[in-house]
């Protein structure tokens, strides 16, 4: 199982080092610090997915002594593991570049990443291979660009929602959101698992 997760690193070869300039680029350009953590987390799992969506790779993995359940589990657990790793690298980069960041940035960044993964992972297994990876990446970026304005729009015009949110304390809110994300992530895992069991190669 851990071998399957480690595989994501091996298939990148030296390209894995690109994560550093990639993070630096986003530290310079991104307006929000949480965005740096989000983007950094995406790098390894989604690059691996882009390679793995190929039919040949699925034939290979399924011919080796792994169960389909394990292959999917490695994807979901691996994403969390590489997220921690990427957050570590990003934190060091931010620290070296003397950019301040808070725990909240990390939490929002990782929360967004997990939500994004939960929504997009099943897509890789529903559709036939081809352009899914690029479609997912582009739509993700667009979502992030238009997401914040929509949220502020909501905040301004739908006071019911903001009033509802405001009645909780900050810690209550964090716990609530965390639980929500965990549920969504687990549900996504289960859905992908079911899809993958039925897949033919």
């Amino acid at each position: 199982m851990f071998n399957l997760i480690k595989r994501d690193l091996i298939i990148h070869k030296w390209q894995i080092l690109l994560i550093v300039p990639f993070i630096i680029l986003f530290i310079i350009t991104a307006s929000d610090t949480f965005f740096v953590f989000f983007i950094a987390s995406i790098f390894i799992p989604f690059n691996a997915l882009a390679v793995d969506e190929k039919k040949e790779t699925n034939i290979l993995l399924n011919s080796l002594p792994y169960t389909r359940r394990q292959i999917i589990a490695s994807r979901y657990l691996g994403a969390i593991l590489y997220m921690f790793l990427s957050i570590g690298v990003a934190s060091i980069a931010l620290f070296v570049m003397n950019r301040p960041f808070t725990m909240t940035d990390i939490l929002i960044g990782s929360g967004t990443f997990l939500l994004f993964s939960a929504i997009t992972f099943p897509l890789f297994y529903i559709f036939k291979s081809g352009y899914i990876s690029s479609i997912v990446l582009i739509s993700g970026l667009i979502l992030l660009a238009i997401g914040p304005p929509i949220v502020s729009l909501f905040a301004e015009h739908f006071t019911v929602i903001t009033d509802f949110i405001n009645q909780f304390t900050a810690s209550e809110l964090y716990i609530g959101v965390s639980v929500f994300i965990i549920i969504i992530y687990t549900a996504s895992w289960l859905i992908t698992n079911t899809i993958y069991q039925r897949k033919a190669f």
Binding site: T57, I59, L60, S63
Partner: peptide, 9 residues
Amino acid sequence: DDNVFYEAL
């Protein structure tokens, strides 16, 4: 028949 291994590796 086809190469199923990661061809870049």
